[in-house]
Design a protein around this nucleic acid. Sequence first.
RNA 1: GACCCCAUCGUCUAGCCCGGUCUAGGACAUCGCCCUUUCACGGCGACGACGCCGGUUCAAAUCCGGCUGGGGUCGCCA
Length: 429
Amino acid sequence: MIRVRFAPSPTGYLHIGGARTCLFNWLYARNTGGKFILRIEDTDLERSKKEYLDEILESIKWLGMEWDEIYYQSQRFDLYHKYAEKLIEEGKAYRKEGAVFFKYDFETIEIDDLIRGKIVFKELPKQEEVIIKSDNSPAYNFCCVIDDALMRVNRVLRGEDHISNTPKQILMYKGLGFEVPQFAHLPLILSPQGGRLSKRFGATSIREHRQMGYLSEAIINYLMLLGWSPGEDKEIISLNEAKNIFNIKDVNKTGAAFSMDKLNWINGSYIRSMNMEDLSKISKDYLPDNYLPSWVSQDYYNKVISIFQERTVRLTDLAESMKFCFYDDFKYNEETQKILDNDLSDKINCLIEELNNVNNFIKEEIEEKFRKTAETLEVKMRVLVHPTRVALTGNKNGPGLFETIEILGKEKVLSRLRKLVEYWGGINE
RNA sequence: GACCCCAUCGUCUAGCCCGGUCUAGGACAUCGCCCUUUCACGGCGACGACGCCGGUUCAAAUCCGGCUGGGGUCGCCA
């Protein structure tokens, strides 16, 4: 049975790269019917924080993954010390400057990487490696080897940045008398410019992306596409579908640059495909406190959401774009004012009258009235449409005007149109 | 600098393992057209890549070598 693990260190929030490593481990385990282990590498007591730990666990779950076993290195210090003692007794390690060093002889090391094939190290920069630090805490490479061996991890999938750790670790496996697992080094996720994904590039944590209005399905979908392809020109794919066809052999070797544009596209695509109930519910998590006036009914809210659904890229966009549906007190801005340069009071007054006569206030009837009015006044539809949109929404573009009118309702529509006429009156005085 | 990894459109990729089906396919982005009351969605189209040099071969994006370029690691961090 295949046993893989994701081993985050709770010294920061779960970032994009970590999430992708976690994802590929998860996919590999689920595809093969193996086990997915989570190991918290909290040996750095100084930098490890409970806050980070909680967030990492939360993010993994939020992304839709679950683990079969979880371990904490901070609870296993005795174990590491025991093995260190054993190595000392066997003459494979020694104490020096208050620390314990593992010593190894120069030796050619071969890694048979599942993704890269054979990797050969002809020499190593050092002949010793700290395994117990002078403050008595165990060092990374040592814990990693002991845990992977004891947890019976037989496939180690990790970032390419760990390739250079691998020969040291193999030497430790051998020194400890453990069986060496198979390794697979995943390509790195690079910044949009191609360099290292770091602070320079705005948001790196999953948490931040969630806060920015990205859906977990979109993030996970996008991450999957970085270094792996489901084939058949498929781009939108769920975690569940992916787990059925994932194969470690199909993973690329090349680093992949992170593209916000593509993530945005995928996110929009998922938003568009959501059902009303789900979108309505989740969208509320992204509204500022006390954003919705008390008079707003669920039915009205849903209708509003429905006209914005196909033009929403991130859930956080909604609060701003929907504003005119809940508030009357918007101003015509500089850009929209240009559309109101011509005083069309007479024409808009006709329109007000016509709309006032609509009994069944639905978009078909409303459109009908618009066409009729335009025809009577011998003007193009656009002459009426554009100023009306500005009067009703404050913006020069947005959802279809007739459905917007239907949703706003006769009362709001007429009062906002009258306000426009007043505005023109004010200018002319 | 040493060691290691990588190399197809601007970006993510398909194809490469098993050479001919590739005048290299798809997606994002960009641009244009259509739909249309605007934006968006959708549809159609354009732009756009096998890094370079050698070798093997009747034939190379595909195999081999070198070069160049990019990336990673060189912590008593993980």
